[in-house]
Every structure is written in structure tokens, then in C-alpha cells.
Simulated scan of single mutants.
Amino acid sequence: MKRFVAIARGRVQRVGYRERVYNETFERNISGYVKNLDTGEVEIVAEGSEKDLRDFINEINIIRRPIAVKSFTVRWEEATGEYADFEIIRGDIQEETFERMDYAGNVLHSMDMKFDQMLDKQDQTIQVGKETLQVGKETLQVGKETLQVGKETLQVGKETLQVSKETLQVGKETLQVGKETLQVGKETLQVGKETKEEIFGLRSDTKKHLDDEFAEMRKELVSIKEALVRAGIQV
């Protein structure tokens, strides 16, 4: 068990600081007291386990409106076990009355500020709601326009599909014509080959015939020449 004596300085009187210190002992096994000093400071004497006491210090050494602990000095000692529980040591009735009034005023001021903040947030929320509603309307309009575009796109798609089908049919017919043209080409090529062979054969026959004719004519000319020589005619 440990004990500390702490002095809190700052805005710690007439702001409910003692009640804050007292409330922080409820879930901790801490005994001792808290009281106002004539110097405007607050004294806290607490006994308990070191862990509870250190956690306790973290919760009361605070700046949280309207409380503002500007300085917090701690002196550690050995526990004496002289306190049965934790209590607030209060001053005379007049001092406590004034402190209660000051604390109540601070609470009312804090509530008023929170109410103003709530009103501001409410106004902001209403403004956001209006803007959200406007955005919703614009989104709805965009949705309608998108739907119209979708319908038009679907119609174009149907027409494109129809054109594609017709193009496919034309392609099939063109392919058929191509196949027939290829067949005609093959037949034409075959006829060309046969015609070439016939022409080549005709040329061979003609050449042979002409060669035979020229040979006969040569023989006849030689015979005529010999006959003329025998007749005494020089050629």
C-alpha cells in the first residue's frame, strides 16, 4: 500500500473539481480526502495500491472545461491506514454555498454552450439534409437520363444486330459466289491446259507437214534443174 499527498493548482475551486476527484475513487480501492485550501489550491491525500493511485492521478490531473489543473505536485509516502474511506472535507456553510453557486453557474454556462453547439449542428444537419436532397434529385435525374440512353443504346444494339445478320447473309452468299468462281477458274485452267496441248500438237503437225512439202519442192526443183542441164540449158 502507498500514500500520496498532492496539491492541485489552477482553476480547481468552485468548478466541481473536488466532486470529480471524489467520483474517480468509486471503482478504485482508495481512501483519504480532498479539500480546498485557503490559497485557492486543492489538497488530495490518498491511500491504496500503487497502480490504483497512479491511475487515479491520471484521471484528476486534467484540463477539461470548466476544470483546468495547471500544476499538480505529488509527494509519495508510506500508507498509514488511518482513513476508512474517501471523503470531501468541506468548509463553512457560506463558502460551500458560494462554491455551489459558482459551480452551478459553470454547469449552466456549459449547458448553454452545448445547447448552442447542438443548435449549430442542427442547422448544419438541416443544411446537409437540403444539399443531400438536392443531390438526390440530381442523381434521380441523371438516373432517368441514363435509363433513356440505355433504351436508345438497346435500340441501336438491336438495329446493329439486324445489320450484322444481313451482313452475315451477304457474306455467306459472297462466299458461295467465291466458291463457284473458284470452280469456274479451275475449269478454265483445265480448258487452257487442254487448249495449250492442242495448239502445241497442231504446231508439231504443221511443222512436219511444211517440212515434207519443202522437201518435195526441193526434189522437184533439183529434177527440173537436171532436166534443163540435159537439154543444154544452163541455169
Score class of each variant (00 low, 15 high):
Tyr83Val: 01
His109Phe: 13
Ser49Cys: 08
Asn29Asp: 14
Ile57Asn: 04
Glu27Arg: 13
Glu82Arg: 11
Gln94Gly: 09
Asn106Thr: 09
Met113Trp: 12
Leu37Phe: 01
Ile89Asn: 07
Val74His: 05
Gly32Arg: 03
Asp55Gln: 13
Tyr22Ala: 01
Pro66Phe: 03
Val42Thr: 06
Phe86Val: 04
Glu96Leu: 03
Ile44Val: 10
Phe72Asp: 01
Glu87Trp: 00
Phe56His: 05
Asn36Cys: 07
Phe26Arg: 15
Glu27Asp: 14
Glu27Asn: 13
Ile88Ala: 06
Ile44Ser: 06
Glu59Asn: 12
Ile60Lys: 01
Thr25Glu: 03
Glu95Val: 11
Asp85Gly: 11
Gly81Phe: 03
Asp38Pro: 12
Thr73Ser: 15
Glu27Phe: 10
Glu77Trp: 02
Tyr17Asp: 02
Glu27Ile: 00
Ile30Gln: 02
Asn61Tyr: 03
Met101Asn: 13
Glu41Trp: 04
Met101Arg: 14
Trp76Leu: 09
Leu108Phe: 10
Asp112Met: 12
Ala46Thr: 07
Ser31Phe: 02
Glu82Asn: 09
Glu24Asn: 11
His109Arg: 15
Thr39Ser: 13
Ile93Tyr: 08
Ile57Ala: 06
Asp112Ile: 12
Ala104Glu: 13
Ile93Gln: 06
Glu41Gly: 10
Glu87Asn: 00
Glu59Ala: 11
Glu27Tyr: 10
Tyr103His: 14
Arg90Ser: 01
Thr80Gly: 11
Thr39Gln: 09
Met113Ala: 14
Glu87Gly: 05
Tyr103Lys: 15
Asp38Cys: 09
Asp102Val: 05
Ile93Gly: 00
Met111Thr: 14
Arg14Gln: 05
Lys114Cys: 10
Ser31Ala: 09
Met111Asp: 13
Phe115Pro: 02
Ala46Arg: 10
Asp38Glu: 12
Lys51Ala: 11
Asn61Asp: 09
Thr39Met: 06
Ile60Gln: 07
Lys35Glu: 00
Arg28Val: 04
Leu37Tyr: 07
Ser31Val: 11
Gly91Asn: 12
Asp102Cys: 12
Val15Arg: 07
